[in-house]
């Protein structure tokens, strides 16, 4: 790891976005934030994050689509995907993993758990 690891955070709730941004910065990562799906896709066009923390339910483009885009794009194939969602049904979680997620975390989450898991995933690379 020559540079700082790059983390993309996507959520339409500003408060959650705020807390995740704080946690990631404190862990020493380089952080990109997007307040909706469209912003996220724009960011992904010019950046190659190492990990993306995605909300699923968003007004324009939902988390599944962003995940799919990441998995289909050659330059982004190293990017880990973590869903952080209020969708807690078994079927939703399964769908998340089927789309290609490395991890599915349900809201409300434990900050320590998120931080340690992000760290683990980044070390795999």
């Amino acid at each position: 790891m020559s540079d700082l690891a790059k983390v993309l955070i996507v959520d339409d709730d500003p408060n959650i976005l705020m807390s995740l941004e704080f946690l990631m910065r404190k862990s020493g990562y380089s952080v990109f934030i997007a307040r909706n799906g469209t912003e996220a896709l724009e960011l992904l066009a010019s950046n190659t994050p190492d990990i993306a923390l995605l909300d699923i339910m968003m007004p324009d483009v939902d988390g599944y689509e962003i995940c799919k885009h990441v998995k289909e794009t050659e330059e982004l194939k190293k990017c880990k995907i973590v869903f952080i969602s209020a969708k807690t049904k078994e079927s939703d979680i399964q769908k998340g993993y089927d789309t290609g997620a490395d991890l599915y975390i349900t809201k409300p989450f434990s900050t320590k758990f998120v931080v340690s898991k992000v760290k683990e995933l980044l070390e795999e690379n």
């Binding site: 709730d13 807390s19 946690l23 209020a86 807690t88 409300p108 989450f109 434990s110």
Partner: peptide, 12 residues
């Protein structure tokens, strides 16, 4: 869950 998530994360 949404407000609860913010509350928990921010409190922690």
């Amino acid at each position: 869950r949404t407000p609860l998530t913010s509350i928990r994360a921010l409190s922690e």
